[in-house]
């Protein structure tokens, strides 16, 4: 496929999709908690812009999704996380990665892997779609990688949310969005999840005085005594 055959609008969608992937990497490498939240907010904003561009390209119902994404993922959820972090006094929390280079290269490996996985899906009519699909799969996988490599509960939530961003990107690119009802439902789910996470954090923090998930490895209170 040649990029020259696409309209400028589609090219812009490509660039934004690539930026979403890049922001996933930025989240993966980010040691500071607050900065991580900001990167997540930016990812939401770029995603919203990509959705808006797709909408402008002939799928007007996606404007609603774009607005929703912007409101929810770029503003509301980051704001909630931000407030949570302030309440838990984690503003200056830094969690450096053990081997940042290794983790980043693993992320790059995931990109190649997801491309390799998606290549056989020849039946999709548009090659465009498949290419963005592989990016979104990579975003999902990197989100999972963030959750694997991080110990901080808040960072894990960010990883989880960015996985959702990847799924959303796939939906927008592959099928010009899901039905509005589904989308609304998913958006609401994410919001509820964010609220629930917030509540959980408070409880975890109260009970173990930390958000380090590595300390949640004891299965019962009994073992705690031994």
């Amino acid at each position: 496929m040649n990029l020259m055959q696409l309209t400028l609008l589609e090219q812009a969608v490509f660039v934004l999709a690539a930026l979403v992937l890049f922001l996933s990497f930025a989240m993966l490498a980010q040691a500071r908690l607050l900065a991580g939240i900001h990167v997540f907010a930016w990812q939401g904003a770029v995603l919203a812009a990509a959705t808006g561009l797709v909408a402008a390209g002939g799928a007007p119902h996606l404007f609603i999704s774009a607005a929703l994404t912007l409101a929810l993922k770029a503003l509301l959820i980051p704001w909630m996380l931000h407030r949570l972090v302030r309440r838990l006094e984690l503003e200056r929390h830094v969690e450096p990665l053990q081997h940042p280079a290794l983790v980043l290269m693993a992320g790059a490996g995931l990109v190649i892997f997801s491309y390799w996985v998606v290549v056989p899906i020849e039946r999709l009519e548009l090659v465009t779609t498949r290419n963005i699909l592989s990016l979104s799969l990579a975003v999902v996988l990197i989100g999972l990688l963030i959750m694997v490599t991080r110990r901080q509960a808040v960072t894990q939530v960010i990883g989880f949310m960015s996985m959702e961003n990847g799924l959303f990107l796939a939906a927008v690119a592959a099928t010009h969005g899901m039905p509005l009802v589904v989308e609304l439902g998913v958006a609401f789910d994410v919001l509820v999840a964010a609220v629930l996470f917030g509540v959980f954090f408070l409880h975890i923090n109260e009970s173990i005085e930390s958000l380090d998930v590595d300390r949640l490895n004891r299965l019962s209170a009994r073992e705690d005594d031994t």
């Binding site: 496929m1 990497f25 980043l104 990109v111 498949r130 290419n131």
Partner: peptide, 22 residues
């Protein structure tokens, strides 16, 4: 510089994945 390398690598990968296809 690792970050620079990552960016360059992403550039290459997005060239392969997004711009040439297969």
């Amino acid at each position: 510089l690792n970050f620079a390398l990552l960016l360059a690598l992403l550039g290459l990968l997005s060239h392969v994945i997004l711009e040439t296809g297969a």
